[in-house]
Simulated assay, not measured.
Amino acid sequence: MALTREEREQFLAEPHVAALAVNVAERDRSPLTVPIWYQYRPGGDIWIMTGPNSRKGKSIAEAGRFCLMVDRVSPTVRYVSVEGPVISTVPATRERLVEMSSRYLSAEKVDGYVDFALKEHGEQVIIHMRPQRWLSSDLGEF
């Protein structure tokens, strides 16, 4: 059964690891699909953080849009897929990295991860996507 707007937005707002998919400009290549952390609040835009010169960052810049898919298998099999255009790309900040890390990590691990990420990941940008097309379903229990 398809989810209602409220159900799909609430599900997307939970801290799932998403599969990001974006078309790549290279011939004879499938779309790039990688796991990623994301941030979303119901009714708002989605944002992700990545390196501007990473394959992912370059592909998103070229395509101007991307898709996220999140799922779970318990207590029911449920998924939400959302696709839309990039509406802005801005430099990442420590505050946004803390916000994202706090969504996925326990409080005692956030500072250590943030220090590591700032040192090891290099320059990062925040890419905002406006949800435009949604697919969702709850397949029940199996």
Rank of each mutant, 00 (worst) to 15 (best):
Ser54Asp: 01
Gly57Asp: 05
Thr33Ile: 13
Phe66Lys: 02
Gly43Pro: 07
Gln39His: 12
Thr33Arg: 04
Tyr38Cys: 06
Ser54Asn: 02
Tyr38Ala: 04
Pro42Met: 10
Glu26Phe: 12
Gly64Thr: 05
Phe66Trp: 11
Gly64Glu: 04
Thr50Pro: 01
Val34Leu: 01
Val24Tyr: 06
Ala61Asp: 02
Pro31Leu: 10
Val24Thr: 15
Tyr38Met: 07
Ser59Val: 06
Arg65His: 14
Arg29Tyr: 15
Arg65Gly: 14
Gly44Ile: 07
Ile48Cys: 00
Glu62His: 10
Asn53Leu: 13
Arg29Ala: 11
Glu26Cys: 06
Val70Phe: 14
Ala63Ser: 04
Glu62Ile: 07
Pro52His: 06
Asn53Met: 08
Asp28Gly: 07
Cys67Phe: 09
Arg72Ala: 10
Ala61Arg: 06
Arg29Val: 12
Asn53Trp: 15
Tyr38Ile: 09
Leu32Asn: 00
Arg29Ile: 03
Ile36Val: 11
Pro31Arg: 03
Phe66Thr: 02
Arg72Leu: 08
Pro52Leu: 10
Thr33Val: 15
Lys58His: 09
Arg55Glu: 11
Asn53Phe: 12
Leu68Lys: 01
Pro52Phe: 06
Tyr40Lys: 05
Pro31Trp: 01
Gly57Leu: 07
Ser54Arg: 03
Met49Thr: 11
Arg41Leu: 10
Gly44Asp: 14
Lys58Leu: 15
Arg72Trp: 03
Val34Phe: 00
Cys67Val: 09
Met69Ile: 10
Gly57Lys: 06
